[in-house]
Design a protein around this nucleic acid. Structure first.
Length: 303
DNA sequence: CCGCAGATCTGTAATTCCCG
DNA sequence: CGGGAATTACAGATCTGCGG
């Protein structure tokens, strides 16, 4: 696990990385609570099969904007290299922002996986790693540690190293769970599975629904805004409206250029009647699909 | 602390269901 | 088929959670 401090070493590592097809990347940031956060470390892993972190490169780039710029120019902007991050958005703030190309975000990936497959309380990288990567419970105390002091403690370096490993493991596992190809689905099997769980689901769903409604009403009635993690909140909002004729009158009188169109609902169309033909009407046609499910009687298989 | 992509909430319109 | 009720779709406002 090379921890690189010298400029020449870091340059060599960057050059080496430009050959990779996929890189798993993480960063550590100092002074993140201030308005001038500083990039402290860039962790790079080329080999997803490394579960110990022996092959993670830790680039120490604190106060080295030139090397960071080089990293961005050589790697981040290069569309030929896939760069994987967790919550990529955050790291990209320091690594090229919108100029970065070919970015994969494991947080986005994880959120697309249905809850029943990955029933986790949150999608923090550590949580995903514990559950999907089969890592023992992970210590997160370093996350809020001070990444602006040097030298870093061995514990910090180890933590930084393992982040890249977790990322690669989680990424690979998420890909396995990702969406199946609709063209290759077994529709018959899907309908059978649906029927299998339909009854249980209906029971649970209707009960959950009712519990929510009863709680909402009860908490309102009993003036209880918070209990056992259930919170009742209310918000008002104001919608402003104006009679159409006033809008027309004012905008015309003042020569006000209001470039908007009005949606012709069924009601308005009826009122307009023949006038419809006089108007330059824009039509937008969209198609929506929906699934209808008929009731099911248990069918005996005849012999 | 902070930016921001998504989820969630909520009101309204559109569509479908249902009954005589 | 009419017409009201129920369901679904959509859009705008607001909330949440992630990273360090």
């Amino acid at each position: 696990m090379p921890y690189l401090i010298k400029d020449t070493d870091i340059r060599a590592a960057i050059a080496n990385c430009t050959q990779a097809k996929t890189l798993w990347l993480d960063t550590e940031v100092a002074d993140y609570q201030t308005d001038k956060p500083r990039l402290s470390l860039i962790q790079v892993l080329e080999d997803a099969s490394d579960r110990k972190g022996d092959r993670v490169f830790i680039l120490d780039v604190l106060e080295k904007p030139k090397l960071v710029a080089e990293f961005i120019a050589e790697i981040m902007v290069n569309p030929a290299i896939e760069k994987v991050f967790h919550n990529a958005q955050y790291d990209l703030n320091f690594l090229g922002k919108k100029k970065a190309k070919n970015i994969t975000c494991t947080l986005e990936l994880a959120r697309k996986i249905p809850y029943y497959l990955v029933p986790l309380p949150n999608f923090q990288l550590k949580t995903l790693a514990e559950h999907l990567g089969d890592f023992p419970s992970i210590d997160k105390t370093e996350q809020r540690g001070n990444w602006g002091y040097r030298p870093l403690t061995p514990n910090q370096i180890d933590y930084a190293k393992m982040d890249a490993v977790y990322l690669a493991q989680v990424h690979q596992r998420l890909l396995q769970l990702a969406y199946p190809d609709p063209a290759a689905e077994d529709i018959e099997a899907l309908t059978l599975r649906y029927r299998q769980i339909e009854d249980r689901w209906q029971q649970l769903d209707t009960e959950v629904q009712q519990l929510k409604e009863r709680l909402k009403a009860a908490m309102q009635a009993q003036n209880c805004s918070q209990i056992n993690g259930f919170r009742l909140s209310s918000q008002t909002r104001t919608t402003k409206k104006v009679a159409f004729k006033h809008l027309v009158r004012v905008t015309q009188a003042l020569g006000f250029d209001l470039d908007l169109s009005v949606q012709l609902t069924k009601e308005i169309q009826q009122k307009l009647g023949n006038l419809m033909t006089e108007l330059p009407i824009d039509e937008e046609i969209s198609t929506s699909w929906r699934l209808l499910i008929e009731e099911w009687e248990e069918q005996e298989i005849p012999f």
